[in-house]
Write a protein that binds this DNA or RNA. Sequence first.
RNA 1: GUGGUUGUAGCUCAGUUGGUUAGAGCGCCUGGUUGUGGUCCAGGAGGUCGUGGGUUCGAGACCCAUCUUCCACCCCA
Length: 441
Amino acid sequence: MKARTPKGTRDFNARELAKRHHVTSVIQSAFKRYGYAPLETPSFELSETLMGKYGEEGDRLIFKLLKSGNFMRSVAEGATPKASDIIDKALRYDLTVPFARYVVENFGQLPMPFKRYQIQPVWRADKPQKGRFREFYQCDADVVGSQSLWQEVELVNLYAEVFEALNLAVVIRLNHRGILSGIAEMAGVGDRLTEFTVALDKLDKIGQEGVVAELKDRGFSDDAIKKLSPALIPARSMDESLTALDGWFEGSEMGLKGIEDLRFILQHINSNIKVSLDISLARGLNYYTGCILEVNPVGLDMGSVGGGGRYDNLTGIFGKEGLSGVGISFGLDRIIMSLEELGQMPDGIVSCPQVLVLNQSDAEYAFKTCMALREAGIDADFYPDSAKMKKQFAYAEQRQIPWVIYAGEREAAESRVVLKHLADGTQTNLSIAAAIEQLKP
RNA sequence: GUGGUUGUAGCUCAGUUGGUUAGAGCGCCUGGUUGUGGUCCAGGAGGUCGUGGGUUCGAGACCCAUCUUCCACCCCA
């Protein structure tokens, strides 16, 4: 048997965990500062909770769990089982659907509006590639029970704050489902909005011509495509785009509502935040009904490091109609990769012991010394075997422990220790209390 | 799901048109040095060449399958 992790999964060593903790603590403290309460949900849900919520493509990517015990019991002899016959649970695919399930299940006990954040791994049976894993973390903040646009304003501010604190240059792109609907309506293809947005979503990838070609492929008429053409423009400054669309949307209620919403957001977010209108931003998830936003790192071919939007009826699928929600998500793994590629990940955040107590001629005295350091709140390690100095020093070096302490017979005799700094080789003979004083963080 | 790519020592990689006993650097272990690491010197361990089949007198190399890695598409964080 070969020891290895499953496809698309990773181990995180001390160094990597330090980086992850650095990023999550920035995100978490922002979530808390904006008034969100923490929530954790199970790593797996009933499969019926998840299936059908992410489109047909999504169902394929959900990790499904076999029924416990004899999972074939409801399958006729010799028959090919249907998925629903042999599975009844599935790994969490995102954090939004479990959140919706939680809200419906606990409705009545929850304060409204209800704001929660959640930082947990999710799983997708995707083929791994750059910046894409089968197990990865999402950091979500959502609020349900309020239609106020102030929520969107807050979330844009929150995004900007986090990425500024992380020192990651990003561009925040905004769009509105109403604008997409308005464009489709004006072109007389309002009934084929989803198809239209799927093609439009590729604008920055395949260009205007590519989108036109795809629309033709999908059977859109030349006339409709011609009318859609004002939409096929790349992202540009918010003000400019809104003014241009404003006149065009005359008579389209949905389109005008979209413009009005985005104007409100634009006017109220922190004035130093740059956002752009990107009408090609459609996002795969079709439950968004209002504002849509996505965040991309500048100067990297990385995909988005965050996204979100408003969904007017997410809880409807669990039988609770009319609850409006809006939320955003941070892609932790991609943020970390972006920071590393740009050389923006801070060094020296690895946590290791402050001092190694060497084990030489008096193990009991050395151990006692180590325990005294620990009781004083110092991260201290005790070398468990009376090995050669060479070996013990090599151990300290490999772990990047900055100090070592000699506490052998000679030191025990006078109740002192020798404290040595590895980097410059200086050492002093002093009392345990004095050593503690020197090592205190 | 489609197409491509990768796999040889702990790590990074050599390995000729198929030919004896598969190499290097770094790391590791032992000793020089049983209370002082990094340097130096001497010696040593470590590989069923991803796995399973096949072709061949002979396979690390060629063929097939499978797993894995990375990449593009689809989709997504």
